[in-house]
């Protein structure tokens, strides 16, 4: 229980610090690096709640998929003449040393927590993925169907919005004139 408490406080502090650095960073890519550390710290907080499934989802979907999408769009929008110079600027050691230190703290925390048997949950026992799956496809099956429709609508909407069409820019110029 003591390991759990210690893990929660340090992970919470890391989450708040990384978020504060993310919103004060000038460069958007640096902000995204700190945002990623913040999400990983939140996942560790979820782990100390006794919600290991949500912690895994947080790492896989948030820190994995959504952040990579952000970075992808960021790189796409910055394709200018000085693109390679900018990329060299992004990967300088002083850029990633801060997020790296915070992530190392989180890794040490995770190792410590696993070694001391933390993650038993603050209030009750830890919830296994099987229980969540049974609930999702039992009482909450309507929600799952709605989520699938939402994702389909999102797919179609993103495709439609992201399509490159020449006439759209022409009509905008006409509107400006």
């Amino acid at each position: 229980m003591l390991a759990n408490t210690f893990t929660f406080y340090v992970a919470g502090l890391v989450a708040v610090a990384a978020t504060a650095l993310a919103i004060t960073g000038r460069n958007a890519v640096h902000a995204l690096l700190y945002f990623n550390v913040s999400l990983l710290a939140t996942a560790l907080v979820f782990f100390t709640f006794g919600a290991p499934f949500i912690a895994a989802l947080e790492v896989i979907i948030y820190a994995g998929a959504i952040l990579v999408l952000f970075l992808f769009v960021m790189m796409m929008l910055n394709l200018g003449s000085q693109a390679s110079e900018r990329e060299r600027e992004w990967v300088r050691p002083r850029v990633w040393i801060g997020p790296g230190i915070l992530a190392a703290i989180l890794l040490a925390q995770l190792a410590f927590a696993l070694a001391h048997g933390a993650g038993q949950g603050a209030g009750q026992a830890s919830i296994a993925p099987k229980q969540i799956a049974l609930a999702l496809f039992g009482p909450y099956v309507v929600g799952v169907e709605l989520a699938s429709m939402l994702l389909l609508a999102g797919l179609i909407g993103a495709f439609h919005l992201g399509r490159r069409e020449a006439p759209a820019s022409k009509s905008l110029e006409k509107g400006d004139a």
Binding site: L57, I132, Y140, G154, L161
Partner: peptide
């Protein structure tokens, strides 16, 4: 936790649309 799963799904969908 079930609602948290739905919120994560919503966030993923919203990020895709917003980035588009």
């Amino acid at each position: 936790q079930i609602f948290a799963v739905f919120v994560i799904i919503l966030a993923a969908c919203e990020a895709a649309i917003a980035l588009a």
